[in-house]
Design a protein around this nucleic acid. Structure first.
Lengths: 310, 310
DNA sequence: GGGAGCCATACAATATCGTTATATCTGTTC
DNA sequence: GAACAGATATAACGATATTGTATGGCTCCC
């Protein structure tokens, strides 16, 4: 048994494919095929069942995968132990956020690091979930907040928050935070949303189906700033989390109301790569983010439901 | 880092000598010297201090040795797991539920075990969360579904579900699943609830505070059957999850409507003791419960929001 | 002072790993 | 049903890593 085999097991298990794992790891597919075969021979078990299109863990494979993941965690602890434990954290860390989350978390996060670990060089990276996942795997970022992807086995995730989405309207639209709008009321309204590849769009469309209506999507725009501007100038209504428009609401430029029947929500998770050790710096960043999120929710700056750590 | 290096670290630490470790392992002494050197270079720490006759762990080396030992333990677990026979699970398992959950999960759970592991003896234990936590700690039950306790360090929990609570009224009350009732409408109604030690009561009272009203609690009863009967006979309204009254609603004996502003919800988690190993049987039970919960939510038998595993 | 025991380094030999080529199988599309 | 695409498995070969051998240098003991 070798560490490279265990790492391969983890990647293949997540992706369901030697070829995809080869792409990700940057090693030729036959080499991974042989690694898995040699591991299976050494253990005398089948870890995967093979199909025409990919391979799936057996039950035994799943059990062994858990231990393999723990081995990776212990290796991470070895590296953490090797690092200087008493000095203030130093070095650089890249933290990924969806754009809306960056707006609300950047300042408190920078403040927290500035207070306790001023020598750390922060790199705050805003991008969509798909890109963030890629960059986590490639080691270009160390930790990310993600809107909930289908859980990737090679990412270690901690649930953070269920975030409510709100109906956003212009001044004079009569929207109020303490009066919910039934989703079905959107039936004949001009709705402005991000494009179909955007997770928020998927959630909203699912809600429309549940409400039994068809949304009239007058404009698609992936930029929240654009959506906000269009709404401000009376070109329609949009559906967004409150975090990017908190200031606009406070200033009276936009109004918001909760939606119900159904209420659109999405889950945010903290994600780390599972096949690579998480440094003390990365761990500190994750803990700090979780603390800030809890604080924002408790102070009602960020409307949603905190999720407890497993 | 390689497993061979960690093994060498362990042997050299024990024997205090590369040469003695080389004899024991059957690898040439210079090879072991280089392995230790490469490990030290990779971690940027000194693991050993060298003397004329042998070498001794540094303090840092001792800390890292602990993790290396744990890696070996996990590898042993992998081998032990691989060596397990693929016999059907057998033995006994005690599974705890809050009473409302037992109603909805017992039959499918028994069916699932009957299909795949018929020799397992199931013990399904219905009790309130406080008791279930006690029994988990004492080992009287192996796994439980709990309404979200403040996380006990000695329990390992996996979030399952956010369950919506509904306003329950008698036939003729006009309640409908597709028309939400603002919580503030409960202001002057006769409300029937469980006692103050019941978690549901706490949630409902928190919602009342948020809605700015005071509930008129006409009757306290911890038995849901009693609450249902009282509502059926027009003695008031109650607030419950749908799971225990699904059949009553289907039969027209009771009506239900969602509440909003705020919407009362509670989180269910799967809980295992953290200080005791979880058997394959227990793990299978937990996975099966999670699958059944997902199925019930997707089929809208159980209204709520699935939470993804961490 | 000499010998024994030990660690570290250089270089050669050997083993392992990754790549390329290709066969085979399964699933999808037309 | 045939053709094509996507995937895994194997063989062969070159590249790279690891181990073995030879040996130097240091410390400790007699």
């Amino acid at each position: 048994m070798e560490l490279s085999q265990l790492r391969t097991l983890i990647h293949v298990a997540e992706l369901g494919s030697l070829s995809k794992a080869a792409d990700r790891i940057g090693i030729a597919q036959p080499a991974l095929s042989r690694q898995i075969r040699m591991l299976e021979e050494e253990l005398s078990v089948r870890l995967f069942t093979r199909h025409g299109r990919g391979m799936v863990l057996t039950e035994k494979g799943r059990e062994i995968l858990e231990h393999a993941t723990r081995v990776m965690t212990e290796l991470e602890e070895i590296r953490a132990t090797a690092a200087d434990l008493d000095a203030p954290l130093r070095g650089r860390i890249a933290i990924g956020f969806p754009p809306t989350v960056a707006d609300i978390l950047s300042l408190p996060l920078v403040a927290a690091f500035g207070k306790t670990h001023p020598q750390v060089e922060l790199r705050l990276v805003g991008a969509y979930t798909g890109h963030l996942i890629d960059w986590l795997h490639r080691g270009e970022i160390d930790v990310a907040i993600l809107y909930d992807p289908h859980v990737a086995r090679s990412l270690r995730t901690e649930p953070l928050l269920l975030e409510n989405l709100f109906l956003i309207g212009p001044p004079g639209s009569g929207l109020s935070a303490d009066r919910s709008i039934p989703f079905s009321d959107l039936d004949l309204k001009r709705i402005l949303l991000p494009s179909t590849r955007h997770g928020l769009r998927t959630i909203v469309e699912q809600c429309a189906v549940e409400a039994g209506i068809t949304l009239h999507i007058a404009v698609e725009a992936d930029s929240y700033a654009t959506l906000k501007d269009l709404v401000r100038h009376g070109h329609g209504w949009t559906i967004l989390p409150l975090s990017p428009i908190h200031d606009d609401i406070a200033a009276g430029r936009l109004l918001a109301a909760p939606l119900t029947d159904p209420a659109p929500v999405r889950q945010l998770v903290l994600s780390y790569p599972a096949d690579r050790p998480v440094s003390r710096l990365t761990r500190f960043a994750g803990e700090t983010i979780a603390d800030i999120v809890a604080d924002q929710v408790e102070r009602k700056i960020w409307p949603g439901q905190l999720l407890r750590k497993a």
